[in-house]
Write a protein that binds this DNA or RNA. Structure first.
Length: 204
DNA sequence: CGGCCGATCCACT
DNA sequence: GTGGATCGGCCGA
């Protein structure tokens, strides 16, 4: 399987990349365990003009500075004091764009992910919810800012790409504070039929 | 320096 | 469908 290269993350905007990441395979190798699944839900956060983004209007802090880096690194942060959320930084240096990964369909290391989720059964279903996703994959705050072209967290090309009629576009979750920007159609997901079709390409 | 609050999840009812 | 858990970052004083 082919690992996505830096150039993938640095071309195009966050919306195009949110769409392009559907079907790609998010993998982690953490504590000697290789786990992962193909991405089936994303949200685009387009920095400067997006009130839902941490970097709205050029806000530049210790936390958000990572979003201004060139694409191809992770942005992991703590939400509600409990959940780590995993984002992919995209675009060129100076553009604070990122894609939030919200769900995967598990294809590797399933038993270990279930262990991390205290026995929650992930086999045969999606791992929905960005906090649960990072817990299953073993991602936490120490992975903030690391390259996605390495051997700890990386993304592989899709084995099979979802077709347009398998993709749903909606407004984003939990961004009601963002005013009009809360209505932006920046959330992308593969429908149930598409998830099952893509999953079949991972079976031996 | 203090207080507020969020890109959530789960265990209740 | 609702509320509690739980904490770092941010803002205003």
């Amino acid at each position: 399987m082919l690992k996505l290269e830096l150039s993938f993350y640095q071309q195009g905007d966050a919306i195009a990349l949110s769409r392009a990441l559907l079907g790609c395979v998010l993998m982690t190798r953490i504590s000697e365990q290789e786990c992962g699944g193909f991405i089936c839900e994303t949200e685009a956060y387009s920095g400067l003009n997006d009130r839902a983004s941490h970097a709205y209007n050029g806000r530049f802090t210790k936390r958000t500075k990572i979003m201004y880096e060139p694409g191809g690194i992770s942005y992991v942060y703590l939400c509600y004091g409990i959940h780590h959320l995993f984002n992919v930084v995209t675009g060129v240096s100076g553009t604070p764009d990122a894609v939030l990964i919200r769900a995967i369909v598990p294809v590797a290391g399933i038993s270990y992910m279930e262990k991390r989720l205290s026995g929650y059964v992930v086999s045969g279903r999606s791992i929905d919810g960005p906090g649960k996703l990072t817990k299953a994959l073993g991602i936490n705050g120490i992975h903030n800012g690391i390259s996605l072209v390495n051997d700890e967290i990386w993304i592989e090309e899709a084995k099979e790409v979802p077709s347009d009629n398998e993709i749903l576009v909606t407004k984003r979750i939990g961004v009601g504070f963002a005013g009009d920007d809360a209505e932006l159609p920046n959330r992308f997901l593969i429908n149930e039929q598409g998830r099952q079709r893509l999953f079949r390409h991972f079976q031996a």
